[in-house]
């Protein structure tokens, strides 16, 4: 129970411009955005809130929720080759998006295993990205997709590769006067792909994952891996890509031997920890096994 809920202040901007003005003026006062509230409310009522000033984004949904296939920004500028997902898009909206399902079914999978229906109806894409939970289900998918995040401030808008955006545990590259306004997914020509998303948790729903693994494998005409992405959650202080393994395996054809090689490389590359949800040993075994089986070609679904 919070000692005093009345200590918490809220500013509710009418649009993005007003929000960014406010953030610029009060950049050093510790105000934080309030999106769907799932994280923030649990923190406040668990007496571990990071702030007492909140910028309520509820009225910005018109501008910041939605999935735009042609990458159109709110200012009307087109960005071909990208899908733009507004930061206030809810997980339910991700799940139901035919556009995203066509581009990458992994997004729906990840959204579908993030909490129950109630959470999915409130939690937002942007909120999940900014809270940067090490085992956040959608985060490895954004990593695997080479997504970029769009950060807006009163004076500028910048796009940052999501990989660079993630910093220390639960910390990101966002500045105090910046608002995460969208995540941008590049659409590339990948004729043949094999995909996998697995969340390993203490039960089938409603638990934070022990580990999350997602993989996207392009295959060239000869059946060799091209543009392989292996991303993990819960295997380190933040979601991560197994870059060395990706490089090692690139250009090779799937086989049991290659799967074993992938597993061994991951043992060297990943350093998970023991915590109340699982053990380092178990996390590494599942990472090795799932990635090994994927690289060997046994698991994953075809997508084109």
């Amino acid at each position: 129970m919070p000692t005093n809920i009345s200590d918490h202040h809220v500013f509710t901007p009418r649009d993005v411009t007003e929000a960014l003005q406010f953030m610029a003026l009060h950049r050093d006062e510790g105000w934080r955005p309030l999106a769907g509230g799932s994280e923030v409310m649990a923190q406040i009522y668990g007496n571990r809130a990071a702030a007492t000033g909140w910028i309520n984004l509820a009225q910005l949904r018109d501008q910041l929720a939605g999935i735009h296939e042609d990458g159109t920004h709110e200012d009307g500028i087109h960005d071909d080759g990208w899908v733009r997902i507004g930061a206030l898009t809810t997980l339910t909206e991700l799940r139901r998006s035919a556009v995203l399902q066509a581009i990458c079914p992994l997004i729906r999978r990840a959204a579908a295993v993030t909490g129950g229906v109630q959470r999915q109806n409130r939690a937002t894409v942007g909120g999940r990205i900014v809270s940067a939970s090490p085992a956040g289900e959608t985060l490895p998918v954004w990593l695997a997709l080479d997504a970029e995040v769009e950060l807006s401030s009163r004076d500028a808008t910048r796009c940052v590769a999501y990989r660079q955006f993630l910093q220390e545990p639960r910390q990101t590259a966002i500045a105090p006067d910046e608002l995460l306004t969208a995540i941008m997914i590049p659409i590339r020509d990948r004729p043949r792909q094999r995909l996998l998303f697995r969340k390993v948790a203490s039960r089938a729903a409603g638990a934070i994952g022990k580990m999350v693994f997602t993989a996207i494998a392009g295959l060239d005409a000869a059946g060799h891996y091209r543009d392989l992405r292996l991303a993990f959650g819960g295997m380190g202080p933040r979601p991560l890509r197994a870059c060395e393994a990706e490089q090692l395996l690139e250009g090779h054809a799937p086989s049991d031997a290659l799967g074993a090689q992938a597993a061994d490389q991951l043992s060297a590359e990943l350093t998970p920890i023991d915590d109340l949800r699982s053990t380092a040993d178990y996390r590494l075994r599942t990472a090795r096994n799932l990635a090994g089986a994927f690289i060997a070609g046994h698991i994953g679904e075809q997508h084109s």
Partner: peptide, 15 residues
Amino acid sequence: GQAVSACLTPVVQLE
């Protein structure tokens, strides 16, 4: 129209 947890919904977002 959507099922949500009342314990995670602040009144400020109910306007």
